[in-house]
Simulated assay, not measured.
Amino acid sequence: MTGQRATQETDLPTPPPAPGTSRPGGRTARTRAAVRDAVLTGLVEHGYPGLTVEYVAEHSGIHKTTLYRRWGNLEGLVVDALDLAGEDSWTPPDTGSLEGDLRALAQTTAASFEDPAAAAAPTAFVAAAFQSERAADALNAFYAQRFARCEVIVARAVSRHELDRRTDAGALVRAVISPLFLRLFITREPIDGTLAAQSADAALAAARAGVFNSPAESA
């Protein structure tokens, strides 16, 4: 819920670290990966305000002229880094029960932020989204895709008669993750496995009570 560096002219990115990131082959992909890694490193070290095209050029080995020609500006580099994240092979957990799936999803999210080094890049992307409208749009698209992939969790639960077919999958998954993100990015409080389990269980109880049933189909 990111890379090897090239030293010659090659291309770019990925976003919040996600397991199973895949990179297509070829020179363009290597260039994109090199630039992506430089963007991630720069965001972690300097934040969005301190990141420059010059920094990306120096740390990726890609000439500044090429960066401007292919990505336009710094925003384009950051947006592409997020876009590439959506090309990974991540899939939601499949434990055999809705409770297990939601708990596993919450636990995985919490665990991904336990290591400060691993959490630095996704945190930097969130910060960039507060300062760049294009970065915000890209981050929104990234998580929208993640939530869409999680729809299968609800589909399986419906097939097992664990949930009403009217359940809004996106609303349920957001309810699982939101308490964690509130602490991570707003109140800056620590999160752990206990909080993850509580978040999942609360969302599950609400779903079973019909809180997330689609209004359009509830009549």
Rank of each mutant, 00 (worst) to 15 (best):
T41K: 09
V126S: 04
T91M: 09
E133P: 09
L105Q: 02
T95P: 03
A129L: 03
S89N: 10
A124H: 04
V53T: 15
Q145P: 02
L82Y: 03
V78C: 11
V126A: 09
D94F: 03
V56S: 08
L40N: 15
D83P: 03
T31K: 07
S89F: 10
G100I: 07
L98P: 13
A120F: 09
E75C: 09
A138Q: 10
G72F: 14
D115A: 07
Y48T: 13
E133G: 11
A135N: 00
L43P: 06
R69C: 01
L77K: 02
A141L: 14
T52D: 08
L102E: 12
P93N: 01
G50Q: 03
T109L: 13
P19E: 00
F113V: 06
F113S: 02
A127V: 11
D137F: 07
T31F: 12
A121S: 14
T108S: 12
R103T: 15
A118Q: 13
T109Y: 07
E54P: 01
E54S: 06
V44R: 12
D101V: 00
S132K: 12
P92T: 01
G42T: 14
A106M: 07
A34F: 04
E75Q: 06
V56L: 03
D115R: 00
S22K: 02
T28D: 10
G96Q: 05
P93Y: 00
L82G: 09
V39I: 12
F113Y: 15
A33M: 06
F113W: 04
R134M: 14
R103H: 05
G86T: 11
R70S: 14
E58T: 11
E87K: 06
L98F: 07
D115Y: 04
W90P: 00
